[in-house]
């Protein structure tokens, strides 16, 4: 109940924020932060709760992004169909990758590497075929109208991504309490024991990766409508894959609020780095990287672990 209260409170506070007239800069900052909190939550379901580390979540993001844009540009259909196509594309890609890799029992770093390779295959294909506009990418014609899911003000996108983020928090909150969530956590903690207790490992993992695919694909659609552009690098480069796992791990993986905390912390750090280092190329990101290392050194369980770290735990990692 307390968790639900925090989620609702967070949603309400953030929802009324635009009323106080924040600058465009602040709103863009918060929008991107929430986008990565949302995408990070997707990684968190499979990686944090299910223990299946993916290095290639951008494959779902990119599938959704391309689906939205292709439906509009190449088929001349509306963005609403694009939205549906994004969710479907993300889920299908999830189904395919999940089916192939879990069928063959890939675990740990092998699963991580196969997702990375799939993202790379998608990037090369997107770079080479005509329907994706190849290396030049595709652009959605600008035509701002709510019916086109294009908005003039930044507030609309902010509210949409806030709604998505809150929905993802509620989803994970429900998942934690569901049978499916319990199965997933059991698989993370000990796959063989879970199997011995009758958990259908393959089905549970497959369900999780399809869910993650659909969620992340929808995030790709959001990105498509906001920036109206896609190219192979944005869609299937390593940036999104890395950032979604960063926000989850830094925030605390396998916790409801981990990705949100992580996204807030990392975006703040990168903003601070930019402010202190000015616009010199390189130095701000170097500081960002250094702060990341420092943070991992002192907060090994993520930001969320700050609240839950116990004395016993402290002794445990001192020993090892």
């Amino acid at each position: 109940m307390r968790t639900l209260a925090i989620i609702v409170l967070f949603g309400l506070v953030m929802a009324v924020l635009p009323v106080f007239g924040p600058t465009d800069f602040t709103l863009s900052f918060l929008t991107l932060m929430l986008l990565f909190a949302y995408l990070g939550q997707g990684w968190n379901i499979l990686g944090g709760y299910g223990g299946q580390f993916s290095f290639g979540n951008t494959v779902f993001f990119g599938a959704g992004l391309y689906a939205t844009v292709i439906v509009q540009v190449q088929f001349g259909l509306g963005p609403w169909l694009g939205l549906a196509a994004a969710i479907l594309a993300g889920a299908l890609v999830g189904l395919f990758i999940g089916w192939v890799s879990f069928r063959y029992g890939l675990r740990g770093s092998y699963f991580a590497l196969v997702t990375l390779a799939f993202a790379e295959v998608f990037r090369i294909v997107a770079n080479s075929v005509a329907i994706t506009g190849a290396g030049a990418g595709l652009q959605v014609p600008l035509d701002p109208a709510p019916a086109n899911l294009q908005f003039v003000g930044r507030e609309s996108f902010y509210w949409i991504i806030l709604a998505l983020t809150v929905a993802s928090l509620l989803l994970v909150w429900q998942m934690e309490r569901s049978r499916f969530g319990a199965y997933l956590i059991a698989i993370r903690d000990d796959e063989d024991a879970a199997r011995a207790l009758g958990v259908d490992i393959f089905r549970t993992k497959l369900k999780a990766i399809v869910l993650v695919g659909a969620l992340t694909g929808l995030g790709g659609a959001f990105y498509a409508q906001m920036f109206l552009y896609v190219d192979p690098h944005i869609a299937f480069g390593v940036a999104v894959s890395v950032e979604v796992l960063l926000v989850s791990i830094v925030g605390g993986m396998g916790t409801i609020f981990g990705p949100l905390l992580g996204a807030a912390a990392l975006h703040l750090i990168s903003e601070v780095a930019r402010e202190t280092m000015g616009n010199t190329p390189g130095l701000n990101l170097a500081l960002y990287g250094a702060l990341l290392v420092v943070m991992v050194t002192f907060l090994p369980k993520g930001l969320f672990g700050l609240a839950t770290v116990s004395a016993g735990r402290l002794f445990k990692f001192r020993r090892s």
């Binding site: 960063l246 791990i249 170097a286 990287g289 250094a290 990341l292 290392v293 991992v296």
Partner: peptide, 11 residues
């Protein structure tokens, strides 16, 4: 470890 090596490479 993953985060630390990633951080080092960013730096």
């Amino acid at each position: 470890i993953l985060l630390v090596t990633l951080g080092i490479s960013i730096v």
